[in-house]
Design a binder for these strands. Structure first.
Lengths: 220, 220
DNA sequence: ATATCAAGCATTGGATACAATTTACTTCTT
DNA sequence: AAGAAGTAAATTGTATCCAATGCTTGATAT
């Protein structure tokens, strides 16, 4: 139980963001499962605050698509469906191929090396760290495009995608394949080969989509 | 001044959405200009409610990118910049070309006719109605793809784009060109020619981007 | 046995009250 | 006169309180 004692109290406008971050990590990691009710009272008690900042936190999570809000009804953790999964990954292809096209002319070798270093960590990481490191790897490559909206959109999609990755436990199935694809992407970036990078990225994301979609079809 | 008398009071959870809709139309139409401060007290008084639903409304608008929120500081109407404009329109190309590709195999002739009817109205409409009709025209063509996230994302981008359209008053410059492009798009849809529709849409949105970006460069 | 309705309980939405932070203004110093 | 510092006013963030809505349970009728 996290209490709001004077020692660990955050600055005045930071509580909703903190609560949202806490809930978000529980939702993405699967501690809070799809469809679970999120009562304002209980969350408020958990974080040692009143219901007011909790309501704002839930609104933030609803904007990120992690929570479903209905008027006069308890909030619920958003559902995971095969249709939504496909929706997310197709949006990722559209957004991330745009980002890599815009980023490639601006990217430096140092930035590519940073991505390569992250990829090295990914190889020797467990399931929990895979998702975040994988997101970081991609975002390092896109950052040079300097498009705030595009970057924010990709980050939001990565969050939604991570939920599926963690929930479906398909990481091991396509982990090796993903590593190979990351290396191919890095090569294309080094060569500043836009067409190759775009094609590589599209295959990479589509492959993940198909593996996960197949797994979901089995589980249902 | 809109009062919250029993006669026009909305249902219990609807106030934030109503307030957000009111503010949104003022922001998009330009009644509220970029950078303008939005004090919770005043808005609450205007709508005849307390500050609480106003805060939620502002949070909604912040999620849509129409308002900037900073902790302990007054909300402000989001700025209009040339960089953001380009960001938005490039995202539109990525999202809308995906939508038309997914929609084309599903679309019916009746739906295409509905879009054509909207296009006819656009020709004989003033500046204020152009933006909304134009958005509707596009969304009718995309709807058959049946992708909730994609559709919502496009709607949000259309909103952001409308602000620039109305603020920059460049509608008349490219209105005729836009009409021609809409007809070309409709033809491609009738023929179920995916490549033509995508190319047409990309040119259409990019052309609008360039006209508006040029105008902004002049105004600054 | 099942469906329907009512009453009480649980939970959310909104108003009011208070605390913390920022902004504006005044005053003092150089 | 310009700038710094301090103080008061304005404004936001959080807590508490009340009203409205939804949910659950149990009784009743079919």
């Amino acid at each position: 139980m996290i209490l709001n004692t004077p020692s660990n109290r955050r600055k005045r406008g930071a509580q909703p963001a903190d609560i949202a971050a806490g809930l978000q990590s529980d939702i993405v990691s699967g501690t809070l499962t799809a469809g679970q009710v999120l009562q304002q009272d209980r969350i408020a008690a958990q974080f040692g605050v009143s219901r007011m900042p909790v309501r704002e936190a839930l609104a933030l999570l609803a904007a990120r698509g992690l929570v479903d809000l209905t008027a006069n009804r308890s909030a619920r953790v958003a559902a995971l469906t095969r249709e939504d999964l496909i929706d997310i990954f197709d949006l990722r292809v559209a957004a991330e191929t745009l980002a890599i096209r815009l980023a490639l002319p601006q990217i430096t070798n140092a930035q590519i090396d940073r991505a390569a270093a992250l990829q090295a960590q990914i190889k020797a990481s467990d399931v929990a760290r895979f998702a975040t490191l994988n997101s970081q790897f991609h975002q390092v490559l896109y950052a040079p495009c300097a498009r705030p909206r595009l970057i924010a959109h990709i980050a939001q999609l990565a969050l939604a995608a991570d939920r599926y990755l963690r929930a479906i436990h398909a990481v091991f199935d396509y982990g090796d394949k993903s590593n190979l694809e990351h290396h191919a992407l890095l090569s294309a970036c080094h060569a500043r080969d836009e067409a190759a990078a775009v094609a590589c990225l599209e295959r990479h994301i589509t492959a993940a989509r198909d593996v996960l979609a197949d797994r979901m079809a089995q589980q249902d």
